[in-house]
Simulated scan of single mutants.
Amino acid sequence: MQPRIPRQSAGEQDGRRPDGTDAGVRFSAELATVVSGARRRAVRDGDRQVDTAHLLHSLLEYDPEARAVLGDGPQVARLLGYLVQRSIGYGLRWQSAVEDSGALPVVTGVTGFSPLAATAMEDACARARRRGWAQACGVDLLAALVLDPQARAVEVLGRAAVDARTVLARAEDHFESTP
Rank of each mutant, 00 (worst) to 15 (best):
G73I: 07
H174M: 12
A136P: 03
R159P: 04
T166G: 09
Q75C: 07
E155G: 05
L141I: 02
L59K: 06
V43K: 03
P105D: 09
D51K: 01
G15S: 11
V98D: 08
E61G: 09
R16Q: 12
V50M: 02
A68N: 08
V139L: 12
M121T: 04
T166N: 10
L80F: 11
W133T: 02
L31K: 07
R16S: 06
A97R: 00
V146R: 04
G91W: 02
S96W: 04
T21F: 01
R16H: 09
L168T: 15
D140H: 10
A124C: 08
Q13T: 11
A171Y: 08
Y90V: 13
G109R: 14
R131A: 13
R127I: 12
G132I: 10
V98W: 01
C125I: 10
R93T: 05
G15T: 07
T52Y: 00
A66Y: 01
S28C: 06
S96R: 07
A160F: 06
T178G: 13
L168A: 15
Y90M: 06
L83N: 02
D63S: 09
A161L: 14
R170L: 12
D148P: 05
G11A: 05
Y62E: 11
Q95C: 14
A164D: 15
R17Q: 07
A151H: 14
A10D: 12
A124R: 07
L31T: 06
I5W: 00
R7Q: 15
Y90G: 06
L142V: 07
H54I: 08
G112I: 09
R39D: 03
A153F: 05
Q95K: 15
V98H: 04
E122N: 04
R129A: 10
L60F: 00
A126E: 13
R159F: 08
Q85F: 13
V34M: 14
E99C: 04
G46S: 14
M121R: 01
Q13A: 07
L157V: 02
W94E: 03
G109T: 11
R152D: 01
T21A: 01
D123S: 11
V84E: 05
A53Y: 01
G158E: 15
R129S: 08
L55A: 04
G132Q: 14
D148A: 13
